[in-house]
Design a protein around this nucleic acid. Structure first.
Lengths: 146, 146
DNA sequence: AACTAATTTGCAACATTGTTGCAAATAGAC
DNA sequence: GTCTATTTGCAACAATGTTGCAAATTAGTT
């Protein structure tokens, strides 16, 4: 099997000040190959060659820290991760997009292209981050039912 | 110690087709006494008389099923629960309010009184539930800093 | 007040998810 | 190739959530 995404991954990791290691390249490759968010166990089951559970946790943590991926907690408590688009960095995550969790296929997508209205908080509250999670049925699953 | 909330709790439980038991009365009492959301471990530590961990899980599950409380997953994966206002039932939960998680005190509040804009999803997607989670600093903690 | 059926509880055991410390291996810079 | 800081694997642990089953309890009925 050829590592056709090798070059891209490496550059991305370097850009985020992360050392190039096999786990990181593979995990990043998974994210780039899938349109939806991945949980720790998704990743653990998909990786070729066995890496330690702990290593995967630490890989994900470092990715979040360096602004490469963001965390998406689902309603049932499952935590997933998805690639950040562009504006995220070590300093801060900026995710004003909606996360969509499909009840049929169970997958979580980032809906980048829909407008997100601004929510005004009450007096005295300040906020650093806003998270939108929609639950329902996704395009594919709706089509499948028809 | 007097059970001063006994009457209220009992009625609420009956209204939601739940049998009246000591755990349920106490857990419901906790929710009614606190303005913020509670996690399983919050509840476990606060209850007087020791009830089994499993029983508390099942109590919370039954409350959610019957539309008495709703689940609020935080960004770090911690799951909390808060009382539903009124319109929730066994059939469906309707929570178009914002959940606010304070990074300073760690508490989660339901902000009922702020307007929540409608989000329009892309073609093909249908949604049943929308969840807003803001992270930042709450009124009290902002005041404390000043 | 006693009887009964269905629900709920406690216990034990287990599964999953996430964390920490430390020695060995590795990446990147010289 | 050498050196240093980072990363990995392992082991152990902590926290969170689930399941099966027997005993206890609730609420309705006589």
């Amino acid at each position: 099997m050829k590592k056709h995404t090798h070059g891209n991954n490496t550059t991305l990791l370097e850009n985020h000040k992360l050392r190039i290691t096999p786990v990181r390249q593979q995990v990043l490759g998974l994210f780039m190959g899938k349109p939806h968010a991945l949980s720790h166990s998704d990743i653990e089951q998909t990786l070729v060659g066995d890496f330690d559970r702990v290593t995967i946790y630490r890989t994900l943590t470092s990715f979040v820290d360096k602004g490469l991926v963001h965390k998406i907690p689902a309603e049932n408590g499952v935590v997933r991760y998805a690639l950040c688009k562009d504006t995220c960095s070590e300093e801060a995550h900026h995710h004003s997009h909606v996360h969509f969790n499909c009840g049929a296929c169970g997958q979580t997508f980032c809906l980048e292209n829909i407008s997100v209205p601004t929510i005004t908080l009450p007096q005295g509250y300040t906020f650093t981050d806003m998270n939108y999670l929609a639950t329902g049925t996704c395009k594919n699953c709706n089509k499948a039912q028809h």
